[in-house]
Amino acid sequence: MLSGFLRGLGSYFLFLGAVLRRPESWREYVKSFVRETELLGMSSIPLVVFISLFMGAVLTIQTAINLDDPFIPDMYIGIAVREGIILEFAPTIVSLILAGKVGSNISSSLGTMRVTEQMDALQIMGINPASYLVLPKIGACLLFFPILVVFSIFMGLLGGYLAGDWLHLVNPDSFLLGYFDEFRPYYILYSLTKTTVFAFIISSISAWYGFNVRGGAVEVGKASTQAVVAMSFSIILFNYILTDVMLQ
């Protein structure tokens, strides 16, 4: 089992080496990057907005219920919701969801290209399939995931505020004050750093699984599932490591 893991890890780093080779045509790579940004990033905005609004709302409800004490001002509920969203919910939960949506898209589309010989067609033309197909995807994820997480933070905070107000769980003015009280910009940096690392994990691991598919449609499905599992493990693991390094 360990030797299998190490072989896989070695293969993953060799794959990254192939991905990072010099492109045959920068112009075509940029065109592909724009296409991937639209496909992987822009199309995820509605999902992220929807999830974040409700995530913020639920967080406010849970925190308000647990801190329902006349001696605790509603401002502290606002602070707790803000820190929860910025530090954990927006970067980690949204990344886990994107691992499912974007990661499985990447692995299944590359897997399909592999089994239908489209990658061989690229290779015959003298184009490095690893680089041409994967580098723009990694670039698109690295650029757009932090943007999605910023969206998620705003939507989560909005959802939290609206839920607190509509359900009369908090005093809206006091709650809102909590959003701005003792705000630490470093937490945004921490959140975006985590997101960037997760973006690389999602795009590269899913691409590696898709790129190495052998067989047919069943194997493409299997690779996609395995990729989501591997990405989720890696995200949770790196979430711990980065938190330990950046917040201790």
């Binding site: 399909t112 239908t116 010989e117 489209q118 061989d120 067609a121 015959i124 033309m125 003298g126």
Partner: peptide, 17 residues
């Protein structure tokens, strides 16, 4: 460079979808 002198037709066509 030499690959540009080659063309190939694949069994399943391998057109980019």
């Amino acid at each position: 460079e030499l690959r540009q002198e080659m063309g190939m037709v694949f069994q399943a066509s391998a057109l980019f979808t």
